[in-house]
């Protein structure tokens, strides 16, 4: 009982200090800072992508996203390493999916893939991007797993896709360095914002990220499904 009391007291101290500091110094929604001022006003014509968040994520702070992708990649490998079993995990999912789910998955699976692709292809125009698109694709595959008890993805193909897309992203970065002198420099022309082919290499990166995230998340789910506790 004392433990709960003590933890509540500690929490009270930490959170109230956080809250008081926040409410005092950063009044909700005051005007934007110097850095974001430039992103907002010059973002579009500098990077060419209508979606400013994508501009920041891929162009201004592209390095973070490269790190980001690596984190996910490391996590996927880590899960693979942690749950590694000598023989290939065979799925023993006892629960048989009902008929509606089976037919529904046959119909919806391609739709979800298409929708995911749409999200990461239009990353620089509409809200969303590589990560969100990849997640949608992963849900498509999860849906497939639930419906078909013996289905499991083709590992070799997925790892190849993963590596290929990862290499595209890193490769673009290195090309930017070789050609333009700065890592992840936007080599291709910005084109007119709003168009599909605009904002130079951003859409290419987002497509690569989309595929990579989709493949990795599915890989993680596949390994987790394979292991019985």
């Amino acid at each position: 009982m004392i433990k709960r009391l003590v933890s509540i007291i500690i929490l009270a101290v930490v959170i109230t200090s956080l809250f008081m500091v926040l409410s005092e110094t950063a009044p909700f929604g005051d005007d934007e800072t110097v850095v974001s001022h430039r992103y907002i006003y010059k973002g579009v014509d500098e990077t060419g992508s209508a979606n400013l968040v994508t501009a920041v994520v891929l162009n201004y702070r592209g390095f973070d996203t490269l790190g980001e992708v690596t984190v996910l990649f490391v996590a996927a490998t880590g899960v693979g390493a942690a749950l590694y079993t000598r023989k290939h995990p065979v799925r023993k999912n006892k629960v048989e999916a009902s008929l509606i789910v089976k037919t529904g998955s046959k119909l919806l699976f391609p739709m979800m893939l298409l929708f995911g692709a749409y999200i990461f292809v239009h990353g620089h125009l509409t809200p969303g991007g590589g990560f969100q698109g990849g997640a949608v694709i992963a849900t498509a595959f999860v849906f497939k797993y639930i419906s078909d008890t013996r289905y499991s993805i083709d590992h070799v193909g997925f790892t190849k896709m993963e590596s290929a897309s990862g290499m595209i992203f890193a490769g673009l970065g290195i090309m930017g360095l070789l050609l333009g002198g700065y890592f992840l420099l936007n080599i291709l022309p910005n084109g007119t914002p709003g168009e599909l082919i605009s904002a130079g290499i951003l859409p290419i990166i987002y497509i690569a990220i989309g595929i990579k995230v989709g493949a990795e998340l599915t890989g993680i789910i596949d390994r987790m499904m394979g292991v019985e506790a």
Partner: peptide
């Protein structure tokens, strides 16, 4: 950059 590029290359 180079280590990340190679890291993605290794699984293949």
């Amino acid at each position: 950059g180079v280590p990340l590029f190679i890291a993605f290359l290794i699984p293949v």
